[in-house]
């Protein structure tokens, strides 16, 4: 390879190399500029997230741990019956969702994956989205990826859904006619009233939001934002929300999972 390369016209090779270096440098800068919503919070809220005894999201994780070990449905199986110890088997799983689900020809998010398992394997009813049980299990599973890098699957079948998510992110919506990107890309770090606008990296979901007084999903956050711009929110588990979640996870690739995070 080296010999073949050396036969190329030198100037062309050098300029290609320089272009690659420049691109590499640019993407390194872009990566460094990414910030978790954690960075925009006051010290008290940061301290609440960092201390497991103070972080209310840990209560949801405990809910999830109990459910993980509880038999459910006609199968009489618990999650643990097949998956064993979640602290080992679920490590890194939440960091790579949404993932492509061949039986659906579409990506599923973690909440959807849990329900596929419940319905298909446990023969139990699906958990309603945002229910205490659904949030608990997703939080417990998410917690097993805490500190790991977000690592979206390198799966070409996801590409069209990534593109759909990106299109949604830049689509202006609602009576107030805002896109996600107009606030979270173009005006991140600014203030909407008192509230700092974060960069919209979904690093900590499900997370405990002080405004909600509850642990909730990224899709609950989407719905809040859409209501804020006076748009009709998409449904929980809708293809649109899963595509948007997929796009945002790709955008946050390499950032650390914080589940369960705390946000204002």
């Amino acid at each position: 390879m080296a010999r073949r390369r050396s036969r190329r016209p030198g100037s062309m090779w050098r300029s290609t190399l320089l272009a690659c270096l420049a691109l590499g440098a640019a993407s390194a800068v872009a990566q460094d500029a990414r910030k978790s919503g954690f960075a925009y919070m006051g010290p008290d809220t940061q301290a609440m997230q960092k201390d497991d005894l103070a972080n209310p999201g840990m209560l949801s994780a405990l809910d999830g741990e109990a459910l993980w070990n509880a038999p459910a449905g006609a199968s009489g199986k618990s999650c643990a019956s097949c998956h064993g110890d979640a602290t080992a088997s679920m490590k890194g799983v939440a960091a790579r969702y949404p993932a492509y689900e061949a039986t659906h020809n579409a990506p599923v998010d973690l909440a959807g994956r849990i329900n596929l398992c419940r319905e298909g394997n446990q023969q139990a009813p699906a958990l309603p989205r945002e229910s205490r049980e659904a949030i608990g299990l997703a939080t417990y599973i998410g917690q097993q990826s805490r500190g790991l890098s977000i690592a979206p699957p390198d799966d070409p079948r996801l590409t069209p859904f990534h593109e759909q998510g990106k299109a949604l992110y830049t689509q202006r919506m609602g009576q107030l006619n805002f896109s996600c990107a107009q606030c979270h890309d173009e005006n991140a770090g600014g203030h909407l009233g008192a509230a700092p606008i974060p960069q919209a990296h979904p690093t900590g979901y499900p997370l405990y939001r002080l405004e909600w007084q509850a642990t909730g999903s990224l899709q609950r956050r989407f719905r809040n934002c859409m209501a804020g711009v006076r748009a009709e929110p998409y449904s929980y588990g809708s293809p649109e929300f899963i595509a948007l979640e997929l796009y945002l996870m790709d955008r946050a690739k390499g950032m650390a999972v914080e589940t369960p995070a705390v946000r204002p």
Binding site: Q171, R172, M173, G174, Q175, L176, N177, F178, Q182, C183, E186, N187, M226, A227, R230, A231, E232
Partner: peptide, 17 residues
Amino acid sequence: TIMPAYYRVDGLTRVAP
């Protein structure tokens, strides 16, 4: 502009019903 149009009803997407 990010300034919403305060007196416009057309050309908008998914306005709350």
